[in-house]
Amino acid sequence: MYLNEMNPSVKALTILGLVLVLALLFDPITPLLFTVSVIIITFLFGTFRKKHYLLYLLPFTIFAFGMLWTTIAFADVPKNPGDTVNLIGWEVPREDLLVALSLSFRVLAFATLSLLFMFTTNMVEFLLSLMQQLRLPPKLAYGILAGYRFLPMLKTEFGQIQAAHRVRGLGQESRWKRYRRFAVPLLAGAIRKAERTAVAMESKGFTGSRERTFYRNLSIRKKDWLFPAGMSLLLGVILFLSIHFGYFSWYQGQL
């Protein structure tokens, strides 16, 4: 599908750009419309496990809703306390509700953009593209890749240390001491493995020089520009709509 096949660097930069623009805005409508469109675009143009996507989206949604309630509940004294909205039997100042909605949808807009990238991008291709298009030094890129591979290994290791400590009868100590007892074997093992991995990579002729060929050549094709163009257009249209209906405002540091 288009999103999976497009150049990862272009995708990442587009998303970063969109995030920066969204961060400057503060109104409920723009991020809401944008969030919905991003989800639709992700589903239309991406291939991924839909169930996983929803599972990931769920905590973000809960987080956003939690933010909604707390912002309303702990809001400052509003300027127009008389102007209220009835929310399921709860009288809420209209101003507070708008601030809360804006904040929550903003979070969701960031989250859906991040999910779009996560679910349609292969980590290896992303790093390859960073090397090939954005001139990231291979030494750093392959170093990161090697470290990233450790993630599943660390998870198993963590479980094993946990079990091993149980047998030793751990438990009466302070939390910080326990963290330390955990961290040292975990990190020591990881560092030793990292060092070995580095030696193994060099033993396969890796020098870190930029002079290398790539089994997978990632280039920027014409159709890769569709994504940034389309997304800017989308944001433009949504901005136009929210200005048109009088919701639009710049971000002024609301919390």
Binding site: V124, A146, K193, A194, R212, T213, Y215, R216
Partner: peptide, 23 residues
């Protein structure tokens, strides 16, 4: 701890890339 790529073919390719073999 001998690998830096995620899939088998990429890992084998890694050495060839270092030798600057034609893709």
């Amino acid at each position: 701890t001998q690998f830096c790529m995620l899939t088998v073919e990429d890992e084998v390719a890694f050495g060839l890339e270092n030798l600057q073999v034609d893709p």
